[in-house]
Amino acid sequence: IRCIGVSNRDFVEGMSGGTWVDVVLEHGGCVTVMAQDKPTVDIELVTTTVSNMAEVRSYCYEASISDMASDSRCPTQGEAYLDKQSDTQYVCKRTLVDRGWGNGCGLFGKGSLVTCAKFTCSKKMTGKSIQPENLEYRIMLSVHGSQHSGMIVNDTGYETDENRAKVEVTPNSPRAEATLGGFGSLGLDCEPRTGLDFSDLYYLTMNNKHWLVHKEWFHDIPLPWHAGADTGTPHWNNKEALVEFKDAHAKRQTVVVLGSQEGAVHTALAGALEAEMDGAKGKLFSGHLKCRLKMDKLRLKGVSYSLCTAAFTFTKVPAETLHGTVTVEVQYAGTDGPCKIPVQMAVDMQTLTPVGRLITANPVITESTENSKMMLELDPPFGDSYIVIGVGDKKITHHWHRSGSTIGKAFEATVRGAKRMAVLGDTAWDFGSVGGVFNSLGKGIHQIFGAAFKSLFGGMSWFSQILIGTLLVWLGLNTKNGSISLTCLALGGVMIFLSTAVSA
């Protein structure tokens, strides 16, 4: 259960009878995928790494000078000259100064003066180019299975845990398959586009800190620079940016070097996208990844198990997540596992009318040892309800109150669905055939309105939902006002479609 501690969480529900669903994975976010007769899966884009970055340009932001020398000439005696002028490691300046009897010249006039100092770069920052084909995306998957609280967001041991898996995709191999043991396998067909235009970005490294910066900004930095990788004795261009020549006297000129420019660069980098280094690879934390999940090989585990009949206890007080759902960790005293956990939410304890829904599909106890633990997640209705676990006299209950409203949740879900469709863009549509167009249209309606429909009408039977949709269509056909007619027709059509397409 990876997503319960992530604030940016998206719930995606598969269409009834569908074998695939489109998701948008982004750094700092987590996606929970639910479908009829399929286990619930949490998917998170953990890291995006980039390798084989080529150094484009380096800037010196802290330097020192040494070996200063000057040469001067009297008027009419030609130009002052130093051998160091031809050495690229030196920074030199030529000027004219007033000369006369007082400073060793027989004539009054302008004399030539040249001053040089050896330039040494102490600290530099480097910009590297990123090729999209060198990106690698690491995705962690977790099935809502027989897990306890100690396994949440624990990325170790996934090789031997059938509840978890790690997959890596690249532009050259965008397809992967996550093996989930008894739950089958989940196929991923990803489109490795981060949403960032790397043709316009460089990877900047300064003092063990890293950013993504725009090329134009990078090339306009007014500091000494050299092109390409460091060859040991780089040729620094624009050395004068960190060196200041003071007022010249008759035979000498003082040279000083400016202080470190790291603070000024940090100020200019305010708002830039931060990154990290992992050995020789860069780690990015921006952008998104679009994936199509193929769920035809994914299956529920323990459908044929019998119900657990022994007593359950709450190991922890049920807690609310950031998303309005409830996490419950229970301990089973029996030894008759594997068995299914009898769990439901009810409005009252007399009729036990089921409300809400299970995020953890078909929760089971897989071990036959005593005191096995299991964590599950529920989506309670707004208002008061009861969490009921167990059967008969051994069942345990917990009162729950959820604040908020169904309308607010439906609106929030619609906005999130619209954002998801905007990110998917043209990849969500198939114009290759008439059937493809209608299929894409259905998927689009489901992406945007599916979660809201589930919130508003999830407790009704599909037949009642179709009746309401048919009534809206009838009202649309018999209303003389054009805008009201079109609105009723659209709402009725969407409702009829979703009542037959969205899983219960």
Rank of each mutant, 00 (worst) to 15 (best):
K246Y: 03
V24M: 11
G228Y: 08
H226V: 14
K294Y: 07
T126R: 04
Y137K: 04
Y202P: 02
E320V: 14
T254I: 15
K283Y: 02
M495K: 10
M421G: 02
P354T: 14
H148M: 03
Q465M: 08
T369W: 14
K110P: 01
G408R: 08
H399L: 01
F183P: 03
A504I: 12
A333V: 15
T313Y: 00
N481S: 15
T315F: 02
G104H: 06
I466T: 11
S440A: 07
L113C: 02
S464N: 11
N163G: 14
S499F: 12
T88Q: 11
S260G: 07
C74N: 09
G492A: 15
A272G: 07
D336F: 13
R193D: 06
Q77Y: 06
L298F: 14
R9Q: 08
W101D: 06
W225T: 03
E367P: 00
G5N: 04
S142P: 03
P222Y: 09
C291M: 06
Q261P: 10
G232S: 12
F438P: 00
V423F: 08
D87K: 08
T321L: 02
T487L: 06
Y305E: 03
G444N: 13
G29A: 13
L284V: 15
G78K: 07
A178F: 05
I65C: 02
F218V: 10
H266N: 00
L188H: 11
V169T: 03
L307R: 14
L298Q: 02
K124W: 06
Q253R: 07
R402N: 11
K166E: 14
H210P: 01
Y61W: 09
F457T: 09
S112Q: 04
C60D: 07
F453R: 05
P342K: 08
V21P: 00
Q85M: 15
L284Q: 07
V391D: 05
L467M: 14
K373C: 00
C116E: 05
A248V: 15
F183M: 12
I407T: 12
T205N: 03
I221E: 04
S455E: 13
A311G: 12
T48D: 08
L135P: 10
A410F: 11
S16W: 04
V41C: 02
H27P: 02
Q465H: 11
I139D: 06
Q89R: 10
V328E: 10
E276Q: 03
A410W: 12
E262L: 04
V256K: 01
V256H: 07
V255W: 03
S86G: 13
L477P: 00
G271H: 12
H144V: 07
D155W: 04
M349T: 15
R402W: 06
H27L: 14
T309K: 14
E367F: 01
A268S: 13
I365E: 03
E274M: 14
T49L: 03
D348V: 01
L471G: 14
F314K: 02
S483V: 01
R402I: 06
T120I: 06
G279N: 14
E377V: 05
V255C: 08
D393F: 08
T47P: 00
G390E: 11
T194A: 14
T360W: 09
L307H: 00
D83V: 12
F449L: 06
L307W: 14
G102N: 05
L471V: 10
Q253M: 15
G263F: 11
S149G: 12
Q331D: 08
V391P: 00
F438L: 15
T397F: 05
T353L: 01
A248W: 08
E216A: 04
S372E: 04
K246G: 14
T205E: 11
P234M: 05
G14Y: 06
D247I: 03
Y61S: 01
A227P: 14
Y90N: 13
T427Y: 02
T19S: 02
F449M: 12
G442P: 03
P318A: 03
K454V: 13
L201P: 01
F463D: 08
G450S: 06
E162S: 14
Y202I: 12
M421N: 05
G404L: 02
S66W: 10
T160W: 11
D155N: 10
M349V: 14
M15L: 04
L135Y: 04
L45E: 09
G182Y: 04
A227E: 01
H27C: 03
Q131D: 03
T126Y: 01
V33E: 07
V494E: 11
T40D: 06
Q344G: 11
C488P: 00
Q350N: 14
H401F: 13
H398L: 01
T49H: 01
V31S: 14
K294M: 09
G444W: 12
A270Y: 14
A490M: 13
A280P: 14
A333F: 07
A410V: 13
G145W: 11
R420E: 07
T115N: 06
G337V: 01
S499A: 15
Q147P: 15
D155H: 15
E274V: 09
F245Y: 12
S70M: 08
I448K: 09
Y203T: 10
G127A: 14
L96P: 02
V326L: 15
F463N: 04
Q447D: 03
Q447W: 08
V46I: 12
V255S: 00
C339P: 05
K394Q: 04
N208E: 02
L467F: 12
E44G: 09
D278Y: 00
A272W: 12
V21L: 15
T335L: 13
S70Q: 07
K316A: 13
G282E: 10
T194V: 05
E276M: 14
H148L: 10
S405T: 15
G181V: 07
A35N: 05
V6E: 06
K301T: 04
N481Y: 09
E367D: 15
T49W: 02
L477A: 03
S260L: 07
D336L: 13
D384H: 05
V328H: 06
N481D: 14
G263P: 08
V153A: 12
L289P: 02
T115V: 04
G324E: 12
C190D: 09
G287E: 00
L456M: 15
R420C: 09
D67L: 13
N238R: 09
T327W: 15
D430T: 06
S58K: 01
G232L: 14
T313N: 00
G469K: 07
A69D: 00
E240K: 13
